[in-house]
Design a protein around this nucleic acid. Structure first.
Lengths: 217, 217
DNA sequence: GAAGCCCCTGAACGGCCATTCACATTGGCC
DNA sequence: GGCCAATGTGAATGGCCGTTCAGGGGCTTC
């Protein structure tokens, strides 16, 4: 009757065959799956290593600590996300409307396609030690700032007419709102549904353009 | 060098004076704060009880388990949220535009004002055992359905003209998107900022109305 | 065939976990 | 004053935790 740990639905991993990939990758992969299914604090080093056919001690030949392992996983998806957002915007030409649409579409497609990666990056980030969390936050701010810049341009050029509160805009809040919205598709979108990733992305881009009051192109 | 637990930024609680309120409430309050600051799995029963000036064993005179304690906390805020949403809508008259605005405003004001409650309810829910999570999910679905119903009415009556994908609506997806957006104000809104809770609520209501293509009233 | 390196093993360390239980201590009521 | 229920204590139970480290294989390179 003494259940020692909260379990988040899924049971610990069975023993596995030794993963054939290079050990660092095998460990990363196993940890990723475990963190996604059960959450960082209840996944033990032993669980992770068992899942790729090694023993506890071997982890420390490849990572300094469990914490570093988590950071490694989150940082790599976060970095790729930032790159993709930047790329989408620079490839979209000069019109703020096109930039906004491209940004949202890229962001949403990614969050539909790499749901699990997004989930881990967003849900487990709070377990990172203070030093290791800093660069992830920086990247998030950078992404937000891309969006804020687009909104600003749109307003300056008169192609966006966003809602005001007492005569003032709050473009930062709007950017946050949009990002929250787009980020959390990953929490409920399933590929089995009636709409594809691209259709979702289009829907979200439409909503974003409407929200900022984009003038017809 | 053997840091035993991930810490989520904040240190365990110092010993506290015995809380003067009735014990159940004192425990609930202490647990709530601890869960909010450090997260369910790393908060120990000893931590909670120490924070309200009791010892571990006493918890079990008031709750069956740590799990039940968490459920108790989440269920009470979730219930109140559901009630407030319902109330806002029924008090808003007949026009779907008014209903939508009222819903969003109530939801956002609450999530700005009770940020921490929202945070705990959303972040820690995944630690609840399968049996205990069911009624929370039911309540969430109920809230979503209120929103879907409003959107549906608006479309039927021709006062909403939401974006389509390949000629079809996806009102459920739109409802989810709006809820995600509104829920996560609680993650970054701070009362020190330039805008009040009510101003935020108005901003979000405006965005929602624009997103669904509400015709001018 | 020796040396050096990389990688893995599994025991060991010091400590903490949720829950139970025999045992006080209270305070109201006869 | 005696009884009872409610409530609190803190030791005990049977574990598991992240990390370290001595020991040992199996490579390559001389």
């Amino acid at each position: 009757m003494s259940k020692r740990k909260p379990v988040r639905v899924v049971e610990p991993p069975v023993v596995a065959e030794r993963d054939q990939r290079p050990p660092v990758e095998a460990i990363r992969a196993a940890a990723f799956t475990q963190f996604a299914e059960r959450g960082y604090p209840v996944v033990t080093v032993r669980d992770i290593m068992k899942a790729c056919g090694l023993t506890q001690g071997a982890l420390y030949n490849h990572f300094k600590s469990k914490d570093e392992l988590l950071h490694d996983i989150i940082a790599s998806t976060q970095g790729e996300l930032e790159r993709q957002c930047q790329q989408a915007v620079t490839g979209a030409g000069d019109d703020p409307r096109a930039k906004l649409a491209a940004f949202v579409r890229a962001y949403v497609v990614r969050h539909c396609r790499l749901r699990v990666e997004a989930l881990v990056a967003n849900r487990e980030i709070s377990w990172l030690g203070a030093e290791r969390v800093a660069d992830i936050r920086r990247s998030r701010r950078a992404i937000r700032d891309i969006l804020v810049t687009i909104l600003n341009e749109g307003v300056q050029r008169g192609v966006f007419d966003p809602p005001q509160i007492d005569g003032r805009h709050d473009l930062k809040a709007m950017a946050m709102a949009m990002l929250d919205q787009c980020t959390h598709v990953s929490m409920w979108y399933g590929p089995g549904g009636a709409f594809s990733e691209e259709q979702m992305a289009k829907l979200y881009a439409d909503m974003a353009l409407r929200a900022v009051g984009a003038k017809p192109q």
